[in-house]
């Protein structure tokens, strides 16, 4: 996951052996409690100015991974490091300082902005919580301009803006602490195509301009391909394939990535008779994980070995790694 030239400095985000389980209620009074394995041993590293896209279907653990990376909930096992500092060890004032370095943008531009606060207050919120600087107003105006809004919008309320503009406000709020990393959880999936393109271009420009690193969670492969250099594909809480976006989408090695890539209907050329190999079934339960490869039941090429032995991520090409015995 780390390009060699950038591997010397500590990555802005690194997770090691990350697990997250949720306990379910007991089914019987003295019965055992089942647990949902949302994230199941994930190692990622995002260098400064790097961009990693996390793709996968619902229930693959991508949003849980984002929440763990943001320290919004603790991992069951493993660690999250921001610029080399263990998030679990940092507490109080140290965590506050570290907080500046990483910010988040959520999917829902309607639910993530307080409707009773002005745009100015919303955008200033992270710095108000962290430092209360003297140049507060200039900084808010600067980031509003950076996302293509006017300083005059400062005194307005969220309902006065469209979905795309609200997402710009959420991005401005993330930018205001001058972070090194922004975690974006489905940042454009609530937006219409014509507006989505505005926000995607903005994300690209801001990365360049501010030297940001991104972790972008999306179910949309094309969105990830547009914004991110690196991609990790998740299935049932594990990374099944990772590598540079160009390679991974052109020559997917894992059968799941191949199926995902194939399933995306292409708008390049119309062809109603284009039939494709479809994956059978749906994503299996996260409560009882199968013993071998989690994908084996839906995999078109699974062998006996796949049902007993968990495949490890291994190098299969330059910078490309897949967790498949047969890749």
């Amino acid at each position: 996951m780390m390009p060699p030239e950038e591997s010397l400095a500590a990555p802005v985000l690194r997770t090691t052996g990350l697990h997250r389980r949720y306990l379910l209620p007991r089914r019987a009074l003295f019965g055992p409690r089942d647990s949902v394995h949302a994230v199941n041993g994930v190692d990622i590293a995002i260098p400064e100015r790097g961009s990693l896209g996390i793709v996968g279907e619902s229930g693959c653990g991508k949003s849980t991974l984002a929440r763990l990376a943001m320290g919004l909930e603790p991992p069951s096992e493993g660690r999250v490091e921001i610029r080399g500092q263990d998030l679990a060890q940092a507490s109080g004032p140290a965590l506050k300082l570290l907080r500046r370095a990483f910010q988040m943008v959520f999917q829902d531009p309607y639910g993530s902005l307080n409707p009773r606060h002005t745009v100015g207050r919303i955008v200033a919120e992270p710095i108000d919580a962290l430092e209360k600087p003297a140049d507060r107003r200039q900084r808010v105006e600067e980031v509003l301009r950076a996302v293509g809004m006017r300083p005059a919008d400062l005194d307005k309320y969220p309902h006065e803006f469209s979905g795309g503009q609200r997402q710009r406000i959420a991005i401005a709020r993330a930018l205001v602490t001058r972070p090194a990393l922004i975690v974006l959880d489905e940042p454009v999936s609530a937006l219409d195509v014509s507006v989505q393109a505005q926000v995607l271009n903005l994300l690209r420009d801001l990365q360049e301009q501010y030297g940001l690193a991104y972790m972008l969670i999306s179910h949309d492969l094309a969105v990830v391909d547009y914004v991110c250099r690196q991609v990790a594909v998740m299935y049932l809480g594990r990374i099944v394939e990772e590598g540079p976006a160009s390679l991974l989408f052109e020559r997917p090695a894992h059968p799941y990535t191949q199926a995902l890539r194939q399933a995306v209907p292409s708008a390049a050329v119309a062809n109603r008779r284009r039939r494709r190999a479809r994956l059978p079934g749906g994503v299996p339960s996260q409560t009882r994980l199968p013993p071998g490869c989690a994908f084996a039941d839906r995999c078109p090429i699974a062998e006996a070995r796949c049902r007993v032995e968990v495949p490890r991520l291994r190098e299969i090409g330059p910078g490309q790694r897949a967790a498949c015995h047969l890749a």
Partner: peptide, 24 residues
């Protein structure tokens, strides 16, 4: 405009989406 704004896998690297200005 709708087609030009649509991200597609394998769009040439460095190519830019052309958003439709304004909002729905």
């Amino acid at each position: 405009g709708l087609f030009a704004a649509l991200p597609q896998i394998g769009l040439a690297r460095g190519a830019r989406l052309e958003p439709i200005p304004g909002t729905v």
